[in-house]
Amino acid sequence: MTATLRLLGMGWWLQMKTRSRDPFDGILNIIYPLIFATTVFMMFREGGDESALITAAVGASVMGVWSAVATSAAGSLQNERRQGTLELLVAAPAPFPLLVVPMTLAMATLGLYSLVATLLWGRIVFQIPISIDQPLVFAAAAIVTAAGISLMGFLLAVTAVRYRAAWALGTALEFPIWIVCGFLIPVATLPEWVQPISWILPPTWGVAAIQDAAFGGTPWVNIAICLGLSAVYGVIGALLAGRLVNAARTHATLALT
């Protein structure tokens, strides 16, 4: 148990180190969501409804967490393959899923920077009166949401073990999740056939919990659903990882050559 936690912790920490050593990547991860947030804030300001603007500011802050994961998760194992470490990870006795989960956890953690940056941007530049009703609960809800997003990223990353073009899929999924998870657009206003998709995605519940925490609701049910769904994604990802690694052993796709 402690060895497993240590393995996760070390994987997470080293991934954070690796990722934060690419200054360009880091800057982009913060600036890119801010660009979209800026546009969104201007649109809501033009609309004139102050309370809608505040809700949007809180929702927009989560957009960057998903961007950080979506754009890097699918490519992460391709990177490992390219630098020749994917084989070493598979050849190690530690269960493969436990090596991939910390990678996407680290991406989501870096995404939390953008969450804070977006809130500050809204507060300072747009002077949106964001006040967090229950700061600790808000932080907890944000962390749970980030965890849920990282487990979605885990599923995405695992798919890429076998399919090399999957990295493009990650980028293509950036907008759809922004659209369906209720970051800015209330799920209830989406077409009816879309809503069930929203319900099975952890960030939908995570964002709802974050908004509850910010505006004085009770987020615990939403947090629990987000955690439960995340666990399901984790289990599916782990099962898929086992199958795909075996397929890769048959089809010899672990190495680049």
Partner: peptide
């Protein structure tokens, strides 16, 4: 190939020690 370029040699070894 087969090493984490952006990490130190020590970090590479610590990670694999944990993996094994």
């Amino acid at each position: 190939r087969g090493l984490y370029e952006r990490l130190s040699g020590l970090d590479n070894l610590r990670y694999f020690a944990q993996l094994y």
